[in-house]
Design a protein around this nucleic acid. Structure first.
Lengths: 348, 348
DNA sequence: AATCCCCCTGCACACGTGTGCAGCCATCCA
DNA sequence: TGGATGGCTGCACACGTGTGCAGGGGGATT
C-alpha cells in the first residue's frame, strides 16, 4: 500500500464478510450481541485485510480522543525529561497518547500550544513547571478540559495539581547543613517569580531556626534555575565577605553553576564550600564532586499526574492536590565547615 | 463551561448567524465565495461564541491530521531531547502537532507505539535512533505513511533519513588525536548492533592511517552508549598494558563514564589520558575537565527531519537521505601524550 | 400447532466539517 | 424590458465509527 492509499475501513470489512458495518463494529468491540461464530469470522477477515480502526472517526462519535496534551517549558531540561518519561510510561500502559508541546518558556508559544491542543480535542492537559500557570485558569472556561499542574500548586475548580513538597525539601537541606555544623549558609534561588523557590528557601530557614540560625537577606540571592544563575550567585557571594560556608541551591543546574564558579575562584568543594542541589537529576552523579541533593521522585511525579488525569476522566472524584515527599541524597559535595571558615577574608 | 460540556460547533454558529453551516465553514476559511460583510459578521459571532474548530472532524474529511508521530528510545537521553526540541520547534511553526512515544528501547513497546500512531492516523512518523529501524520497512506496507529515520540510514521506498556523517565525525577525532601526537589510541563503542558505532570507528581509523597508525582490535571495545559502557571499557583497557594515551568514545555519555573510571584509577585527564566524546551534549561543558567532543547539530537534525516530513507531505519529491556534517569542539580533555606514556606499567 | 421469547442482525441516525453542484437574486447589457 | 451573467448561498453528501431501535427467525413452551 502506498502512503497515499486510503486505509481499509470498517465498511470494507463488512462488504468482505457479507454483513453490515454495524455488525463489524460490534464484533471488533467483542460485543455479546454478536454470535460467537460470526464474531470470530469477522475478526479473522479484519486481521487479514490489515484493518486498523480510525481513532479519528471513533473520537468524533465518542467525544474521547484517548489523547492528552502535555505542555512543557523545555524538554531539554533533564528534570522535565524525566517527568515526561513517567507520564509517557503510564499513558502507554493505558492506551493513551500524549501530544508534546515545547513552549520554550515563551508565553506566546505556550498559548499557541494550548489553542492547538484544544482543536485536537485532547481529553486533558498536563502542564509542567509553567510560570504562567495561573494564566490557564481564566482560559479554562473556554477550554472545557481538566488540567493537571505539575509542581505548580494552584487552587481552582477543574484544576488539579501534583507536586513536590518544596518546603519539606528545603527543610531537609537546612537540617542537614546545620547538623554538619554550618552556621553561615546562603541560598541561590530560581526565577524570582517561582513559588517553589521561596518555598524551598522558607523550608530551609525553618530548619535553620531550630538550630538558632537563619539566612540573612543578603545571602538569599535570586537565580534563574540554570547554571548561569548559580555561577552569578556564587560570584556575587564571593565579592562580599564574610563568605558562607555552604550554599543551598534552587536546583542541580544551579548547583552545577555554583560549583564551576567556586572552582574558578580557587575554592575547593566541599573543603572550602559545601553545596546542596535539588532535583537529583541524572548528571548530579557525574560532576566532581558528586552532588549532595534533595531528590524529587521525578518519574513518580509524572506517573501520578497521568494517573490523576485518568482518574478524573474516569469520573472519579479525586483529591485535587497530591504532594510527594522529597528525600536527601548524600554524596560528596558537603562536609563540615573548615575551622575558621566564614571569616571576613579567606586565603586568596 | 464545565469540562463535560460539549464545545460549540460550526452548526451552533450557523444557527446564531442565521446562515447554513456551509457558509460558516467557508467564512472561517476566508473563502472568496462568501460576501465580505457576511464573512466578517460570521467571524465575529464565531469569536464571541468561543468557537474552536474540531481537528477531529476536519481530519476525518480531509484525511490529514496535521500531526506526526515521534518514536524515541528514551526522552531522558539529552541528545535525543535536543533533537526532539528541533522537531517540536518547526512543527509548531507549521501548525503541526507531535505525538511523542517513548519506547524505552523496548521493541515490544515500540511496536505498540507504531500501532497507536497508525490508529491516530498521523501524517508521518519520525524515528530517532531505533535499533530496530529495519523492522519498520516490512511494517510500512500496512502503515501507508512516510517514515523519516534520524541517524539510522536505511534505503527503501517511503523511508527517508536524516543523519549525521558518522564517518566524517570519526575522522575528525582521529585526525585531531594524531595531530596531537598520540600513537596509541583506543575506541570504546556503542551498542554492538549500532551501525553508527562502526562508522565512527572506521572514520577514526581512516584518519589514523593517514598518519601511519591504526586502532588494533584489542583496543576497539564495545560499549552501550551510556556511562556504564565507558566505565567498563576503560577499566578493561587499564587491565592490559600497554595502555592507550587517548580514548575516542562513541558518545559523551560513554566519555563521561570513561572519565570517571580514569579518575578512579588515579589517572589524570588529560595529563595521563586524553578523551574525545561525541554529540556535544549540554553537559559536556560541566564535567571536569570539560569534554573535547565531536559536535552533532542536534537541533538541526530535528529541524531537517521535520522539514523533510513536511516537504514529503506537501507532495514534493525530496532527496531521501540528508546528511549533516559534524565538527570538532576543542575543550580541555585532550592534550599531547606525556613523554614515556603508553608504556607497560604506569606510575602507580 | 400456535404463541412467545430470545438471540442476532441491519437500518438509520449522529458526531463536526468540507465541498461539488444547483439555484436564486441582482445587476448589467442589448 | 428581457435575457444573460456573475456573485453568493444552501442542499446534500461524504468521511469512518458507534449505538438505539426495530425486525426477523428459530427454538422452546404450552
Amino acid at each position: 500500500m502506498s502512503p497515499s492509499a486510503k486505509p481499509v475501513s470498517i465498511k470494507d470489512v463488512a462488504r468482505a464478510a457479507g454483513v453490515s458495518h454495524s455488525t463489524v463494529s460490534r464484533a471488533l468491540a467483542d460485543s455479546p450481541l454478536v454470535a460467537a461464530g460470526t464474531k470470530q469470522r469477522i475478526q479473522l477477515i479484519a486481521r487479514e485485510m490489515g484493518y486498523t480502526p480510525s481513532a479519528i472517526a471513533r473520537g468524533l462519535v465518542t467525544r474521547r480522543t484517548a489523547t492528552i496534551g502535555l505542555v512543557v517549558t523545555t524538554i531539554a531540561d533533564p528534570f522535565i525529561a524525566e517527568v515526561v518519561r513517567g507520564i509517557e510510561e503510564t499513558a502507554l500502559d493505558s492506551d493513551y497518547s500524549v501530544i508534546l508541546c515545547d513552549s520554550d518558556a515563551d508565553p506566546e508559544r505556550e498559548l499557541a500550544c494550548v489553542r492547538t491542543l484544544r482543536e485536537k480535542r485532547v481529553d486533558a492537559i498536563i502542564v509542567t513547571s509553567s510560570r504562567v500557570g495561573s494564566l490557564y485558569v481564566p482560559l479554562l472556561e473556554q477550554l472545557g478540559v481538566p488540567i493537571v499542574l505539575i509542581n505548580n500548586q494552584h487552587a481552582g475548580r477543574y484544576v488539579y495539581s501534583v507536586r513536590n513538597d518544596d518546603r519539606q525539601g528545603g527543610w531537609l537541606a537546612g537540617e542537614y547543613l546545620a547538623s554538619l555544623g554550618h552556621r553561615r549558609v546562603a541560598y541561590v534561588g530560581g526565577p524570582p517569580d517561582a513559588h517553589s523557590s521561596v518555598e524551598r528557601l522558607e523550608g530551609c530557614r525553618a530548619a535553620l531556626r531550630e538550630h538558632g540560625l537563619d539566612i540573612p537577606g543578603a545571602l538569599a540571592l535570586p537565580g534563574d534555575g540554570r547554571t548561569g544563575g548559580g555561577q552569578a550567585g556564587v560570584d556575587l557571594l564571593l565579592q562580599r565577605p564574610p563568605h558562607p560556608t555552604a550554599v543551598f541551591c534552587y536546583n542541580d543546574m544551579t548547583a552545577i553553576g555554583a560549583l564551576r564558579a567556586a572552582k574558578a575562584a580557587g575554592l575547593r568543594v566541599p573543603g572550602d564550600l559545601s553545596l546542596v542541589g535539588y532535583d537529583d537529576i541524572a548528571f548530579a552523579v557525574f560532576v566532581d564532586p558528586p552532588l549532595t541533593t534533595i531528590a524529587q521522585a521525578k518519574r513518580a511525579l509524572g506517573q501520578r499526574a497521568m494517573d490523576l488525569a485518568l482518574a478524573i476522566l474516569d469520573g472519579q472524584e479525586e483529591t485535587g492536590d497530591i504532594v510527594l515527599t522529597p528525600h536527601l541524597v548524600e554524596r560528596a559535595s558537603c562536609a563540615p565547615p573548615a575551622p575558621g571558615a566564614g571569616m571576613p577574608t579567606p586565603s586568596r
